[in-house]
Amino acid sequence: MPDTDAAAVAEKIRVLVAKPGLDGHDRGAKIVARALRDAGMEVIYTGIRQTPDMIAEAALQEDVHVIALSVLSGAHLELFPRIVDACRERGITPQNTLFLGGGIIPPDDAAMLQGVGFSAVFGPGAHTGDIAAYVREHVPALDRS
């Protein structure tokens, strides 16, 4: 048995990083995953070509605080709301989980995504440090009861 004291382990921030849809450009998702790892978080990386159900199911099984999605194909308005719906069916809502979007997402689209429950959208040029800081700042406000 490992002799780490389980009682002393504090709650870690757990983040699901996933790429829905068909584009295979996962460099950005991997960089964000790596940056959040280096910020001390536990990042569940699911890889490319994930369906909304796959993402929602992984979020459920992994009990994550954050769902971070990356799309570079322009299909974000199609995919992101469906993922929020698939999550809601499983009791995962913007009240208890932070939804973050990333990719080539115009400002008007970002505003629409915020309307369906996305807390923030990070586009090209976003600093990974800012993403980690955003997560750290907003996770404590989630209703995890």
Partner: peptide, 29 residues
């Protein structure tokens, strides 16, 4: 940093739709 990348699900994607399977990733901590 005590951070972790938990990547085992990448190879288990086809199990997601099966309610008879539950996968949990753990970091060694």
């Amino acid at each position: 940093t005590q951070g972790a990348i938990l990547g085992d699900r990448v190879r288990m994607a086809e199990l997601h739709a099966d309610r008879g399977v539950f996968i949990r990733s753990l970091a060694s901590r």
